[in-house]
Design a protein around this nucleic acid. Structure first.
Lengths: 222, 222
DNA sequence: ACCTGAACACCGTTCAAGT
DNA sequence: ACCTGAACACCGTTCAAGT
């Protein structure tokens, strides 16, 4: 659509998105991105102040592309879908979660929070309740989303360990419980535990805050 | 105790520990560590295969130094103390949590799991129950422990935002909920929310698994 | 055995210079 | 206006050489 000559910020972001999906946010280098674009690394500095500004916009682009779930859904289900959608994006772009936590003032991080806040406030949470619920959710992090150097298999195990692992065999006496649990631990992946853990967190939020919804309203002085 | 000449692995680890506490795991460089020791960067490679092996041992040293809580405590309280102790260590050494998640097969990561598993199994959890509880806890991550370039204030806010933040002012229409919530959000720190969120997670584990303890045992076919 | 020094292949970034 | 090329101050790591 554009003339083939003339590097645009949009092009740079698009190429960076592709590289981020393949290699992870943490592995991106200005020289690598520039090479992919057939240009010199320093050329990028004409379009972006520094690497940070480029990644900021890439992250914002990803977060803005996430579609919000149906507003007609019950708030618990709506919240569940929002968080799962976000987690999926962060697994697709390794290191994105880490970047957003690192740059909590970035547009991407703001959008991240805004998506969650919208659900909570639509559900009738008070400001205090909303702050608490957001805080609780902020401790809910998929560990794999923080490993920023490779795409993650859909069913990656919590442990890279095998029973034959040399360190575990050598130091078995130091990790008796771990050794005993290895078969049980090896049976499942993060994927299978994620919704389970998320449901527990959301149930906890629902139990604590009791916004106006279902059940008869309890007396609320305020 | 040792002759002043002669670099030892122990010395290297000790100095690295100090630097990690001040600057964070992610900011360590071999040249920097060597300089601190009055030695060349390449000298370190005589004592450690590579940077990774050095950090592995530093991380293991930290995790091994954590003292386990009283075994006589109720398992919920014991679990609470274990997790809080671990979180404290990871806030003291910025980037340690990230390193352990990244190197899930390291001695430090194994010890991390072992500490939790010990509590769960002592409490009478079955293998399946233990695996589920560990998985649930593995999604409980203090976000600040993942920012690896500086020590963290004891009461750091979830948001670096201020109401006057230029981005938030400029794009206020994009973040209506966030803008409305800023005063409520600014009122508390991660520190104040951590135990609250942890208690919710532990309560969730307790509700789901019901190990032999308190309350009359429910019928358990198996 | 233990350490140095030079070197290699990388980084992010600055800046004068080209067109 | 837009990009290049050289340069700077960094990385982790290898390897021959010194003692």
């Amino acid at each position: 659509l554009r003339e083939p000559e003339g590097l645009t910020a949009r092009e740079i972001i698009e190429v960076t998105l592709g590289l981020a999906r393949k290699a992870g946010f943490g592995q991106l280098s200005m020289r690598q991105i520039a090479t992919q674009l057939g240009v010199t690394a320093t050329a990028l500095y004409y379009h972006f102040r520094d690497k940070n500004e480029l990644l900021d916009q890439v992250a914002a682009h990803i977060m803005a592309s996430l579609k919000a779930p149906d507003r007609a859904l019950r708030w618990t289900e709506r919240l569940r879908q929002v968080v799962l959608t976000q987690q999926r994006a962060m697994l697709t772009y390794p290191g994105l979660a880490r970047f957003l936590i690192y740059h909590r003032e970035s547009a991407g991080a703001l959008h991240w929070m805004e998506m969650i806040l919208e659900v909570l406030r639509d559900a009738g949470f008070s400001d205090l309740e909303t702050a608490r619920a957001l805080a609780t959710l902020s401790f809910f992090v998929h560990p794999l989303t923080l490993v920023d150097d490779r795409p993650h298999a859909h069913a990656e195990h919590m442990y890279r360990l095998r029973i034959s692992d040399r360190r575990l065999v050598a130091d078995a006496s130091k990790y008796p419980h771990l050794k005993a649990l290895l078969p049980a631990l090896a049976r499942h992946s993060y994927d299978s535990y994620l919704p389970l853990a998320l449901d527990a967190v959301i149930a906890g939020i629902a139990a604590r805050h009791k916004p106006r919804q279902r059940r008869t309203a309890r007396k609320r002085a305020s």
